[in-house]
Design a protein around this nucleic acid. Structure first.
Lengths: 153, 153
DNA sequence: ATCGCTGCAAAAATTTTGCAGGTAA
DNA sequence: TTACCTGCAAAATTTTTGCAGCGAT
């Protein structure tokens, strides 16, 4: 149980595999979609739609297309959506086979993000589900604090 | 360690105590602020700004005022802000002395909310903070699932 | 009598949608 | 060819802000 150091296995799923997942679901492999997936592939941390838009080669696609694509990719389980408290959704690629379950440690000053693999024991979640009669329980957990660099004024 | 059943002690801080907290900080006790606090007091679960607005007696105050008040109350530690995934912040009163730390179990179908007092061991958070050199660590944890009523189609 | 607070209106920021044309399969 | 996708533009949401006047202290 330790902090994930973004292993290659997590980030290096080739673009071809990603687009293959689109094909398998009869979704078209278009320029914008490839550019979005490639952008996400090259970033270790969740990106907002605007950040994806800005990171893409010369206005390669419309912002509305990014919004639509993120909905599609989320529904397909290819990306995961996070909310860090400013009113902007952030997205991160989910590797094939991986359920993408992990958390983040966010600096409240500079917004630096560290990925965290730790999680609490599964029994806690099961107990909460059972006690309240809920099924299909999941959770979202994010940590906030002041990063080392922001501690020295 | 069990689900909180909204005890009186949690919800019955009198309005006068709440406004007293404003006075202590040299904040004015106005009509809108009293109406907002009273509305929050009467609801066991987090409310959006719009819900507060709608729940208030006959348009008793402007929506912009609610936004401004929630910022003030949040900064004073009198309310806590939550995000459940739709892009709308929700607010809940924090009792005096209480740190307001608790979580929610949200039905993904009907949005019913159950308050959860359980939490994971503090050591996990401390370990994460230490390992990454972060200070003043906090966390946000929300559970999602399908509530009993929504399980029968 | 202050100065903070509010309402109103306008603006900003984020996200969604309609439509006509373009393109992957 | 034929759906699916995209760009563009407009709209819908959520939140913030400017300003003049009102009101708590």
């Amino acid at each position: 149980m330790k902090t994930r150091l973004h292993s290659k296995t997590t980030r290096q799923e080739p673009l071809a595999d990603l687009t293959g997942r689109l094909r398998k679901r009869s979704r078209r492999v278009t320029g914008p979609r490839q550019a979005i997936l490639e952008t996400l592939r090259q970033h270790a941390h969740p990106l907002t739609n605007k950040e994806i838009f800005a990171a893409m080669p010369k206005g390669n696609c419309d912002l509305a297309t990014i919004y639509r694509s993120m909905h599609l990719l989320e529904e397909m389980g290819m990306v995961k959506r996070f909310h860090f408290g400013d009113g902007a959704a952030r997205f991160e690629l989910v590797s094939e086979g991986d359920d993408g379950h992990h958390h983040h440690l966010v600096c409240v000053r500079c917004s630096q993000i560290v990925e965290i693999e730790d999680c609490f024991p599964h029994e806690l979640e099961e107990a909460i589900a059972a006690r309240n009669g809920f099924k299909a329980i999941t959770h979202k957990l994010e940590f906030f604090g002041v990063c080392p660099r922001c501690q020295s004024p």
